[in-house]
C-alpha cells in the first residue's frame, strides 16, 4: 500500500500542521468553539480527546479484521463512547473542579468527528503502531489548536493566560472574546493565518 511509504515521524507531524484536524480539516468544531473560553479549558478538552482517540485507535486497529463492515460504525461508536465515559467519570472523581467547567462538553466527545473520522479513515485500515502514532498526532494537533485558541480568547477577553495576569491593570477586557462570537472570530482568523502561511510556503 502506498500509504505505508510515509515515515512514522511524518505520520505524527501531519496531524500538527498539514492535516490539522481543526485548522485544515475543520473537524470537531463544536468543542473547539464551545470550551475555549480559557486556555486551561482548551488544554483539558484536548487532553481528554488525546486519551479517547488514542485508546479507541488502539482497540479498533487491533480488532479491525474481525469487525464486519456492516456494523463497523456502531462498533466504533460503542468503543469511543466507552472511553469517553471512562474519561468523564475519572475526571469527575479526581478533577472535580475541572469537571465542573467542562462537564457539559465531555460527553459530547463521543460525537466529535475527529475521533470517529480517524477510526474510519485510519485505524480501521492500519496496524496498531501506525494508528497510535496517527491518533497521537491528531490529538496533539487538536490540543495545541484549542490551547492557542483558548489562550488568545482568555488573553483578550479576561486579560489573563492560564489565570496569570498578562495585561496591565488599565486593560479593559473585550467581553466579546469570551462569548461565542469571539470563538468564531478567533478561529476564523487562525484558519486565515494558517492558509496564508501555507500559501507563502507554496510560493
Amino acid at each position: 500500500m502506498a500509504k505505508n511509504k510515509i515515515s512514522l515521524s511524518k505520520e505524527f507531524t501531519k496531524g500538527l500542521w498539514n492535516e490539522n484536524p481543526v485548522l485544515v480539516m475543520l473537524l470537531g468544531l463544536c468543542p473547539t468553539l464551545a470550551v475555549t473560553s480559557s486556555a486551561i479549558n482548551g488544554l483539558a478538552m484536548g487532553l481528554a480527546v488525546i486519551f479517547t482517540i488514542t485508546c479507541s485507535s488502539i482497540i479498533i486497529s487491533s480488532v479491525r479484521k474481525i469487525i464486519p463492515k456492516e456494523v463497523r460504525i456502531p462498533t466504533f461508536i460503542i468503543v469511543i463512547a466507552t472511553f469517553v465515559t471512562i474519561t468523564d467519570k475519572s475526571m469527575a472523581a479526581f478533577q472535580p473542579e475541572l469537571h465542573k467547567s467542562l462537564g457539559a462538553f465531555i460527553p459530547l466527545i463521543v460525537v466529535n468527528c475527529v475521533i470517529l473520522g480517524r477510526q474510519e479513515a485510519f485505524a480501521s485500515k492500519n496496524n496498531v503502531g501506525r494508528s497510535i502514532i496517527d491518533a497521537l498526532g491528531m490529538g496533539v494537533g487538536f490540543t495545541l489548536t484549542l490551547t492557542v485558541l483558548g489562550s488568545i480568547r482568555e488573553w483578550l477577553g479576561a486579560g489573563t493566560i492560564f489565570s496569570l495576569q498578562m495585561m496591565p491593570d488599565s486593560f479593559v477586557p473585550w467581553m466579546v472574546m469570551i462569548l461565542p462570537p469571539g470563538a468564531f472570530i478567533t478561529l476564523g482568523l487562525m484558519i486565515g493565518v494558517t492558509n496564508w502561511i501555507n500559501a507563502r510556503k507554496g510560493k
Binding site: 474481525i66 469487525i67 464486519p68 456492516e70 456494523v71 456502531p74 462498533t75 460503542i78 468503543v79 463512547a81 466507552t82
Partner: peptide, 14 residues
C-alpha cells in the same frame, strides 16, 4: 451470525 456476535459482544464488554 458473526455480525450479531461482534456487535453484541462489544456492547457487553463496554
Amino acid at each position: 451470525a458473526k455480525l450479531i456476535i461482534v456487535l453484541t459482544m462489544t456492547a457487553i464488554i463496554s
